[in-house]
Simulated scan of single mutants.
Amino acid sequence: MFTAVATAVDEPLAFTEREVPEPGQGEVLVKIIACGVCHTDLDLLQGHWPIARFPVVPGHEITGVVAAAGPGVSWPEVGTSVGAQFLGDSCRRCDHCVRGEQILCPRKRITGIVMDGGYAEYAVLKADFVTPLPQGLDPVAAAPLMCAGLTAFNGLRQGGITATSRVAVIGAGGVGSLAIRYAVAMGARVAVIGRSDRGEAAAREMGAERFIATQDSDPAEALKAWDGGANLIFNAAPSTSAAAAAFTGLAPDGTLVLVGYGPEPLTLPTRPMALNRLHAMINPSGSPHDMRDTLAFSAAHDILPEFTSIGLRDANAALAAMARGHAGKRSVITFG
């Protein structure tokens, strides 16, 4: 099978042919249809994952079809369309696992970082950590939902979104644009914060009622003028400072959720936090039950990301463009 392999930090992906692997106990062999190119894949190559196991096949936004099942696996059946996510395995015994929050397991294993992922024609995956795709959901368009979609959907839920929430989304890229559409579909009012007004038309088309350009106004003050502030600020931008700048635009009891952040520490004003019971959290991806809910909600509301289909040999170019900040639409590797 044709495969892309991350061999070391600061090295481009190497392409090679490998034997199709066989699934072991509790595993399934998935014939891959598509794999999204995620910023986490770039982080792997840039050395931001000290737990990484090299060589490793990157990719955790995986969709495909179960081609074979290993010993002890009766579900999902061969022929089932499935997706696989960032979370590839867990200990199954700790308090977090038995409560269904495997993403918090201290011994979790990450697809494409310590386990071979989806930059290949086939992948062996843990049967308990693949998710059947809802009927009729396009597997190529659905690939980014396995991480970008899950991150946006679950981040909003963990932040306490309700149908009466005012939600401010910072950054309208791959994750941010999905967060906008999910929040609107959940009944919330949405404002989008960007550096310039260049993205205003697209934000309003997705359902945002307000657009705040930080080059023209202070984001916190602009949010405070929005009926007293945002109940939830969702930072999808790769900038910690952007989140901090908007933080005091929260309404009392409001929550800042970071799914994007930079290398700088998060510094927040303690007095406004104390006086208004403000909250801040970083939300990591999600557990298998969150993945099911994300896919079901996306299918029910016809929420799919915009993407560009590429071949596996184009992966290095897509990652390089991402590193330069010129990625455009989300790239999805497809296998014919």
Rank of each mutant, 00 (worst) to 15 (best):
C35T: 11
P272I: 14
L137F: 08
H301I: 02
G26H: 06
P269H: 07
E121C: 02
E22I: 00
E200V: 05
P106K: 02
A300Y: 02
L125I: 07
G249E: 15
A244K: 01
W75T: 15
P284Q: 11
L295R: 06
R53P: 03
P21V: 06
Q85V: 10
L133D: 06
Y261H: 15
T151D: 02
V56I: 12
V114F: 04
M322D: 07
A203D: 02
A185Q: 03
A230Y: 12
F86S: 12
K329F: 07
D10V: 01
I103E: 10
L45R: 05
N154E: 13
A296H: 06
A148N: 09
G88N: 07
A236N: 12
G262Y: 01
V9S: 05
T164C: 07
T7G: 14
Y122E: 10
F297W: 12
F129C: 08
I180H: 02
L178A: 10
A320E: 12
V5T: 14
R109Q: 14
V98L: 15
F297D: 05
G159S: 03
P263H: 14
A84C: 05
I310C: 07
M322I: 13
H39E: 06
H96V: 00
A52Y: 13
T255G: 11
G171F: 01
A52R: 15
G24D: 01
A191E: 06
G64V: 05
G70C: 03
S285I: 08
T308Q: 13
T308N: 09
E11F: 07
E200M: 12
S81Q: 14
A243P: 08
A246Q: 09
V5Y: 01
G26K: 08
V190W: 08
E19V: 06
I282K: 10
G88I: 13
G159R: 00
N276F: 05
A52K: 14
S177D: 05
D138Q: 03
I333S: 12
T334Q: 07
E77M: 03
P76D: 10
G70R: 02
Q135D: 11
E19I: 08
D128N: 10
N231H: 15
F247Q: 13
P55C: 11
D89W: 03
A203M: 08
L258C: 14
L295N: 09
L104Q: 15
H96W: 14
T164P: 00
R107W: 04
T131F: 07
M206I: 04
L312M: 09
V73E: 15
Y182H: 07
S165H: 13
P106D: 09
V78K: 11
L266E: 02
G249A: 07
V257F: 09
A299K: 09
T16F: 00
P12Y: 00
I282N: 13
S298P: 00
F297Q: 03
V5A: 13
V28L: 11
S81F: 06
W226F: 12
E19M: 05
I161E: 02
G173W: 01
G171R: 01
G187N: 05
T162P: 01
M273H: 04
T7D: 14
A213T: 03
T164V: 09
T3H: 12
E11W: 02
Q25S: 12
G176N: 05
F153Q: 03
R181W: 06
P23K: 10
L312I: 13
A220G: 10
V78Y: 04
S196K: 02
S196Q: 06
D290Y: 03
G88M: 12
